[in-house]
């Protein structure tokens, strides 16, 4: 089976995630899009691992999943806190850290 469809799928998922991060305002959705991008890269990693016939890519993918899990924990906690204090989950509302 050719690896092309997997790569294409990975690219499509990454692009969707990327566009989502840049355009959506809801922090939860942005967050989901980030996860989407991570998973797109996971898919690519695994595909290449398969193509090269070794486990390096899979190991990397596991690392990415671990990082993603940690990120979810911290990220969701931040979003929750922001929501509690500001009654909003929009990323544009939290623009205090500027010049």
């Amino acid at each position: 089976m050719s690896e092309t469809p997997f790569i294409v799928l990975s690219a499509i998922l990454f692009t969707i995630g990327c566009v989502g991060v840049l355009t959506r305002r809801n922090a939860i959705v942005v967050f989901m899009c980030v996860e989407l991008m991570l998973n797109a890269s996971n898919l690519a990693l695994i595909t290449f691992a398969r193509v090269h016939g070794n486990l390096d890519g899979q190991v990397a993918a596991f690392f990415v999943m671990v990082v993603a899990a940690a990120e979810v924990v911290v990220g969701l906690a931040i979003i929750m806190t922001i929501f509690r204090t500001r009654r909003s989950a929009s990323v544009d509302d939290a623009s205090l850290l500027k010049y």
């Binding site: 990327c18 840049l22 990323v91 544009d92 939290a94 623009s95 850290l97 500027k98 010049y99």
Partner: peptide, 17 residues
């Protein structure tokens, strides 16, 4: 130059991209 730091996550993400 610090005007670029506008506080919007999206613009930061765009510059990363």
């Amino acid at each position: 130059m610090r005007r670029w730091q506008n506080g919007f996550v999206r613009s930061y993400a765009l510059s990363v991209l």
